[in-house]
Design a protein around this nucleic acid. Structure first.
Lengths: 176, 176
DNA sequence: CTAAACATGTAAACGGTTACATGATTCG
DNA sequence: CGAATCATGTAACCGTTTACATGTTTAG
């Protein structure tokens, strides 16, 4: 379901696009929240076209097909956004790893967290550059999500630094 | 892969357990980072047993089978934790929704964010109670992860509140 | 002319969800 | 004895990943 929603959403905010465009845009934008490659996107667009959620607006060179959201599709997107079902899927391999940090030696766990801090700092710099770059132009699609992404990255970064410090501290006490 | 890791990790920190135990523990602990039901867990344990990552330690009443991690299994867990591949899977339906908030009317988006604030506050209270309850007893499995969970929940909560305020403000300006 | 980028598709294998199916033990 | 809980499994279906497969246009 979420893939359909992602595609409907992207088509709504960016206007008519091809599967190829959507695949690229996926990576650059909602790739932080959902992943899908062209081999999943092309069939899905065809299915949605068959069900009347999108239409093939025009066919261009190189077999390019441009899709647009129909009224039925727009309604489905609306429903998904507003229906407050409590079953929102969430999967996070990093968080999973956090659970099992204590199965490592303290110095290993701390080292791992230090690399995590670095990785998140880099990610943070990247996202902030993106935001600042946009601010000079007009506001774009995904501004709220970008803000959330920055805040979450900062939070995870702080957690990793604090946790590394805690682990190093108690390991130091253990061997005075 | 992640399911196997989750099971190996749980078996490592809690000691020998049955598929039934692991299913329940899954919900209560790493359910925040990964979801799996018994219909996925039982076959996976059998596969891992066949591959020598776990062994059936003992069989109890009602067909109960208790599994334990082997040295080979422990090594696989270690590898997964330490291998710093940059491809850590992340999926978040809530974040996906954040991307498409601008397709709604401002008052709808703001209302949706307000319910999000409430939901996260409730979740936050739940997680903090869990942590405080544990602090009085001895430190348990998943303490670092719980800390991360609390911080992330707080962050999302703040974001939702701030974003709702921003949207309401600019909607107010539009109709003075 | 040739390499890169554009553009779309299918198929096999794998992972995950929902529903079906069964039986043993314990508690009231 | 009946209901709840313990305990395990299978099968059908759907979603996702990886690999295969093909052809067009543009830029150098």
């Amino acid at each position: 379901m979420s893939l359909r929603i992602a595609l409907l959403g992207l088509l709504t905010v960016t206007g008519p696009s091809s599967g190829y465009d959507l695949t690229k845009l996926f990576e650059r934008s909602i790739g932080y929240a959902w992943q899908a490659g062209h081999s999943q996107i092309y069939p899905e667009l065809n299915k949605m076209a068959a069900e009347g959620w999108v239409t093939v607006e025009q066919e261009g060179p190189r077999g390019r097909k441009s899709y647009a959201v129909t009224d039925a599709g727009a309604l489905e997107l609306r429903r998904w956004l507003l229906d407050k079902e409590p079953s929102r899927l969430y999967r996070d391999e990093r968080l999973l790893r956090a659970f099992f940090l204590p199965t490592l030696e303290p110095h290993e766990a701390a080292a791992l967290l230090r690399t995590e801090v670095e990785a998140h700092n880099a990610q943070l710099a990247h996202l902030e550059a993106l935001r600042d770059d946009r601010e000079r132009k007009e506001a774009g699609f995904g501004d709220y999500a970008l803000d959330l992404g920055i805040r979450k990255t900062q939070t995870v970064c702080d957690w990793a630094a604090d946790t590394a410090a805690t682990i190093e501290e108690s390991a130091g006490e253990a061997r005075p």
